[in-house]
Computed example of a mutant assay.
Amino acid sequence: VHDAALMDRRHDAGQWARSASRGAAPRVVAKLDPCGPASGGGTTTTATAREEPERYRLRLWCDDGDGLRQVSDDSERPRGAEEVAQEIFAAVGSLRRPDPSGPRPVIELIVDRDALEVPVDRWKAAGPGAVLPIRLGTPYPLVVNCPELRELNGGTMLDQWRERWTRLDAEEPLHIDDATAPDPEAVCGLVMERLTARVTIDVAAHRRTGVVQMCLAAGVPVVLWDRSGEPESPAVRHAARMSARELPEAVRIYRTKTMQRPEEYTGRPVLAWADAGRALPRLDLADPTE
């Protein structure tokens, strides 16, 4: 091989290696478990309980590219929304980033089916250092992941989830609205017709939860919807133009615009993202009677 050709190939290989190293963004994985409102001692009426802020148990892992490492200590202690945001921001700050020009770190929330629409992306950190009114979903892409729904039907849907993920860049996205899928049978038929990896949902608010959960239970790895319930969602339209792999960043940018011009950017996008190529932490469940 001529020296000049060899140098060209080495240059190409170096570019490929740099691109590959930036392919997988570092991430913070947060397991979020609602545990009811704060207890102030004494008797609490039902009305008062509804007014008190929700509390959460939190476990955190960092993934710098070398695998998951747990970084949270007291995972059983209930926390408020501001404290959760503060701890997640601290975990992102602890990530080792050998290439600062690489992709932004991703915050991946592991939630159960009842917490898919908890507005974590709008939570602000507390504390004396919180000078900027930064919401959790604006400086970094924030996605949700619900293994509970994916595992409902056992290995069949898990295999479909893995197969769908391999088709993320090949399959055309599927859009579900009230016209294309007026009932659960139609939704199921659309999702099962082909191994689509990406679904956008824009249905009436009273149907949204059921349609979202059906798509996730079918193993669809990327699902986008708007929790505001606004018909013909501008947030969904904004992201629909993007390629699948651009969605986490596109949703992040939309969330920044809701801070700048809330009257114009009224949507509240939620992005479920389940990368079949990246490990989740082992979630060892304790016997609730212990």
Rank of each mutant, 00 (worst) to 15 (best):
A218T: 04
T266S: 14
M192T: 05
L190R: 14
R167G: 04
T166Q: 15
L168M: 00
R164E: 10
M192A: 13
A274L: 02
G229T: 00
E249F: 01
W273Y: 14
M259V: 12
R194D: 04
D202Q: 09
L216N: 03
L190W: 04
V222T: 15
A235K: 08
D202A: 10
D202V: 04
E249M: 03
D177R: 09
E263V: 05
W165Y: 14
Q260I: 06
Q260N: 01
R241S: 13
A250G: 11
G267P: 03
S233K: 06
V199I: 15
R245P: 01
P173K: 12
P248F: 08
H206V: 06
R237L: 09
R278H: 11
E193H: 12
A170Y: 03
G229Y: 02
A204D: 14
L195E: 13
L247M: 13
T196Q: 10
H238Y: 15
T258V: 02
R252E: 07
A272E: 07
A205T: 07
S233L: 05
D178K: 06
E232L: 06
R164N: 08
R261L: 11
H206T: 05
A197N: 04
E230K: 07
H175G: 09
R255P: 04
A186V: 01
P262F: 13
E171W: 00
R278Q: 15
T256A: 12
